[in-house]
Design a binder for these strands. Structure first.
Lengths: 214, 214
DNA sequence: ACGTGTGAACACATTCACAGCT
DNA sequence: AGCTGTGAATGTGTTCACACGT
């Protein structure tokens, strides 16, 4: 379930504060969901709570980590070392738990050989070799839109079945390959959509109020 | 609906190729969805298609843009000019349609005054003033986790009701405020989850095959 | 004939409400 | 007494399949 990472983060925050046990009510509010949903989500992993008491934080952290596959390390390759690629490479959050940035690749010869986040940027021609030698299982695409599909295809053919795509294109991949997409301008457009609906509503209300006053 | 931006992008690509009319089947495959879903989504905006023919690309682009509120310009403020904030500031995709980066803010005095993407970074103390003077309606938070809630609260109190949050925390905001969250390590964790399920399945299959072979 | 628009069937997620354990 | 785990009810989103307009 897509909410497990959020629960995990909330639990780790509790753990850092030395809290040993937590009720579904508390954890749910920390994660921004309702308590029935949280209990149903957790019950999918098994019965890890104690009735009348709640959940043991440490045990639950371990169970969720295991369910998410964070007890093993995943090697990640980033292709496209522009502003965003650099930002990801330097983002400390990955290394902390379960993920290791194994390689940075770029098509631009001027980029190749530069050092980013204490890794040498290598030429994209080495993609297949790097995937094999580093055991890369997750590919991150931060290239321009035009290059993304080609990179995705190469990842897939090299055996990478998990792709995180930041390029604003719909990737075509075979069944069994998992693509997640992060699209910044789509997020903004969705915000604009809601903002406009709010504004429209205000307008209608104002108009209605005006009519009532006349 | 959250898929309209994807349709819009696909339509604009068709438009660039000089294509005037498109069927739900074609557009759906370009957007990576099924055609019934696309028709139902579009029917929510009104009856903009012609039976037996399809949709007129240009007209549909206009209707979706209008629905999304992209016919007006939205001023965006980015708080937290680290690697990610800089990447967003430099990302050209925003300016193209409907969004204008109106201000960059940071709490670090060493950062203030620097020029990023031809904008001067200003101190966070100016948040309220900038929101008012630039008419900011969308706030982007790329600060460390610890600072995010404070920034969000200041945005809300300044009248910003749309927030795009990159910090790995659940923001607490009043009803009526729209928060969207982009969390890179959550995306990776979800990929790891599926990757592990694949691996487990392979393992079981391998084991089963092994058993069958013995 | 072709492709949209849409009721009806379906699948899935959320919420309610409470039995049952501690 | 308190809180989990879960059947039942509800809501939401997806898919099917076809009547209807062009």
């Amino acid at each position: 379930m897509a909410r497990l990472p959020i629960y995990l983060r909330a639990l780790q925050a509790l753990q850092d504060r030395g809290i040993l046990t937590v009720s579904s009510e508390h954890l749910a509010s920390a994660a921004g969901v309702n308590s029935a949903k949280l209990r149903k989500d957790l019950s999918h992993l098994g019965s890890y709570g104690t009735r009348g008491v709640g959940y043991e934080v440490e045990y639950l952290v371990y169970q969720i980590s295991r369910e998410l596959g964070l007890t093993q390390d995943w090697a990640v390759a980033i292709v496209g070392i522009g502003n965003l690629g650099r930002a990801l490479a330097n983002y400390g959050g990955f290394g902390t738990r379960g993920f290791r940035i194994a390689a940075l690749l770029d098509a631009d010869p001027a980029m190749v050989g530069q050092s980013v986040a204490s890794l040498d940027v290598r030429h994209i021609d080495n993609l297949e070799a790097v995937v094999r030698s580093e055991g890369v299982s997750i590919g991150v695409i931060t290239t321009p839109a035009a290059a993304a599909q080609g990179v995705a295809t190469r990842f897939v053919e090299a055996g990478v079945a998990s792709i995180l795509n930041f390029a604003p294109v719909v990737l075509n991949v075979p069944d069994g390959v998992d693509v997640r997409k992060v699209d910044l301008s789509i997020e903004l457009q969705i915000l604009a959509f809601h903002a406009q609906r709010r504004a429209d509503g205000d307008g209608r209300n104002a108009e209605r109020a005006g009519l009532e006053l006349t």
